[in-house]
Design a protein around this nucleic acid. Structure first.
Length: 653
DNA sequence: GATTTTTTAAACAGAC
DNA sequence: CGTCTGTTTAAAAAAT
């Protein structure tokens, strides 16, 4: 609604963009926390197994990432991959599109309501699983971390390859699962001229291609995954088995029953993939009715049809099952999206780790220069990008299904506000990718966002212009209507006491008075005791230190931290501890106060907010992962970034 | 339903 | 003079 006046073009060229890593944010946001979706009729035991495997993967992944990073850092020779990242981003149905498809076909508002209720129940179960999973993860992390000093370079590389390969396979599996789920429901019919079929979904992700790709990437023959671990092998089995119809978790909660059930179902489903090509009906395969929870055997297709019409007619039970199936699909979709994201982060990490700030190919012409409003690609019917749906902590995770969600693109706002003391950081980090690409208003207040921007900066201080840049960099939404939100940003900076302006030779920077920020609203910590404890812990560290952790977690590519910060407050603390340890281990020198941006550091004396002389600023020097490392020593790189930022802004405004 | 917070809009002043 | 930065007021919207 705001006039996007030209005068908005900021003169960012003048101000040096501090080295905050925009891109490479390989951030490999965590997928694992939401791992094994309670899909289908896999038994509880199976789920646990699967989760354990994922734990293994993530552990290895973490270690690999860590060491590879170190390796890269010291050798300055990032692994090269002769593969374009773009290749690896097949266009799959976005969650939004999925919702549309599903909703348009079957659901009435009442049904949606029912569905929501069921989801809640389901989510309870999920939560239990996740709790279990987290505990295990925590344990293993601890264990592994104790032996982290003894790895050898060669091992790391090969292990990295392994993990990477597994990631590829995982994504592929998810895609197949997803598709098969759709087919199973009959909600998605496979037709040659439709663009949803399997070969389209897996386009660029065909196993053979993956293998080939992997060979190219590694320059070595592909190791059989089962030789190193059973993850890959198991994963493949899961793939084929995954379409097994889900036991309705609401109707049947006896794991033993499920176990018996699934054990032979899995076998039968194993070749479901190529099966429905014979019979047109996706619910019939291998002589078995594939309706979820059914599995009646039939001699011929006709009797199956008869059965289908009789037993699975449009009644309450069937619709309920259908809803559950939708839920499964949703989960898979989410999982898939996250894993894709993770994969891409990995690829980016391996490919352009320390040179390319933009991980996601963001076409510069996406938002064209002079016509911010005129370009209609952003209009409602189809989202221009294919962002993953924002992953939200449990409570809202499935708001995606609400009827309103289809229309929420613009006006509807639901702020997270600052209920909790560490309000948005985990969420914002988790959904980084999403907000970077989706023209969706982030559900955070300006104050929260500004704070986040500042805390993410290496020195917990930003100029106004740098804050602007952070907004535009991190949120597609803020690439438009600059006059409006910039005004709001300035307004917020002035309005809230928690933002402190610090004079500097070169001007002024803004810092966050953490205590004030906490004060802003009566602290109603309604969350778990763990959360409270965590907050206390953080406060104990002092604002500066806590901020440092926040920022480093946000900026670094190490999945564990992101995982932990999202996964559970307890783990967050753990991550902090680990982080601290690592900082100590990695670089000692703590070379006095040599800034990454010598020119504009405010006078230390003026800091009544203790953001300055903290002993262990991770970015201080040789920050383990971020681009800042390079930026510190390479004027060219600085220039490069300046240019990029200018460029970006020109494009946006 | 009242109160508080947040957002949006806009006027204005000072520095550059 | 125009732009950027920063402060302030006002009103509407949203959240509590």
């Amino acid at each position: 609604m705001m006039q996007e006046a030209g005068p908005e073009a900021p003169s960012n060229g003048t101000t040096n963009q501090n080295g905050v890593v925009a891109g490479a944010e390989g951030g490999a946001r965590d997928v694992r926390a939401k791992s094994a979706t309670p899909s289908s009729d896999i038994t509880a035991a199976d789920l646990v197994n699967f989760q354990q495997q994922q734990v293994n993967i993530s552990l290895v992944s973490f270690l690999i990432d860590l060491f590879a990073t170190l390796l890269n850092h010291f050798t300055q020779q990032p692994l090269e991959m002769p593969v374009s990242v773009a290749m690896m981003t097949p266009q799959v149905i976005t969650p939004q599109q999925m919702q549309q498809i599903l909703q348009q076909q079957v659901l009435s508002p009442q049904q949606l309501q029912l569905l929501l209720q069921q989801q809640q129940a389901l989510m309870l179960q999920q939560q239990q699983l996740q709790d279990f999973y987290k505990k295990q993860q925590e344990q293993l992390h601890l264990q592994l971390f104790q032996q982290h000093g003894s790895k050898q370079q060669s091992k790391e590389v090969s292990a990295q390859q392994l993990v990477f390969q597994q990631q590829l396979l995982q994504v592929q599996q998810l895609q197949q699962q997803h598709l098969l789920s759709l087919q199973r429901q009959g909600l998605l019919s496979i037709q040659p001229n439709q663009n949803l079929p399997l070969h389209s979904l897996t386009q660029g992700m065909i196993p053979a291609e993956l293998q080939q790709l992997w060979k190219e990437v590694t320059g070595a023959p592909v190791k059989e995954e089962n030789s190193a671990s059973n993850n890959g092998h198991r994963g493949l089995d899961l793939t084929s088995a995954s379409p097994a119809p889900p036991k309705n978790p609401l109707l049947n909660q006896h794991p033993t029953t499920n176990g018996q059930y699934s054990s032979h179902t899995l076998k039968r489903e194993s070749s479901a993939l190529d099966d429905h090509s014979h019979h047109s009906h996706p619910l019939y395969g291998h002589g078995v009715c594939k309706w979820p929870g059914c599995e009646a055997v039939f001699e011929d297709f006709q009797s199956f049809l008869k059965h289908l019409n009789n037993e699975h007619a449009l009644d309450d039970r069937s619709t309920a099952q259908c809803r559950v199936q939708m839920q499964v699909v949703q989960q898979l979709e989410l999982q898939l999206a996250k894993d894709k994201e993770r994969l891409q982060a990995m690829m980016t990490h391996l490919h352009v780790k320390s040179t390319e700030p933009k991980p996601t190919p963001q076409p510069l012409n996406l938002v064209s220069k002079s016509v911010p409003e005129a370009s209609p690609p952003l209009s409602l019917p189809q989202t221009p990008t294919t962002p993953t749906a924002p992953l939200t902590p449990l409570s809202q995770a499935h708001s995606v299904i609400t009827p309103t969600s289809l229309h929420t693109v613009g006006p509807i706002r639901r702020r997270y506000s600052d209920k909790y003391n560490m309000p948005i950081s985990p969420d914002i980090v988790q959904n980084k990718e999403f907000y970077m690409n989706a023209d969706v208003r982030p559900p955070f207040t300006y104050a929260s966002l500004i704070r986040q921007a500042i805390l993410e900066s290496p020195e917990k201080q930003l100029t106004l212009n740098e804050i602007y840049n952070w907004f535009t960099r991190m949120f597609a939404y803020f690439r438009r209507n600059a006059a409006t939100w910039k005004n709001a940003v300035r307004h917020n900076l002035s309005l809230h006491k928690c933002f402190v302006r610090v004079e500097n030779v070169k001007g002024a920077v803004w810092t966050v008075d953490e205590l004030e920020f906490q004060k802003r609203r009566p602290q109603k910590i309604s969350g778990s005791p763990a959360l409270v404890k965590n907050i206390q812990t953080n406060l104990g560290y002092g604002p500066a230190l806590s901020a440092a952790f926040q920022a480093s977690m946000a900026e670094n590519n190490i999945p564990l931290y992101t995982t932990a910060s999202i996964g559970s407050p307890t783990l967050n603390s753990l991550a902090n501890a680990i982080r601290e340890e690592m900082n100590g281990a990695m670089d000692h020198g703590n070379s006095n106060g040599s800034d990454s941006s010598p020119g504009r550091s405010p006078l230390p004396a003026m800091h009544h907010i203790s953001v300055k002389e903290e002993p262990l600023d991770p970015e201080e020097h040789e920050g383990p992962l971020s681009l800042v490392t390079t930026a510190n020593h390479s004027p060219d790189f600085d220039h490069h970034r300046d240019y990029e930022d200018d460029h970006g802004n020109e494009d946006m405004l």
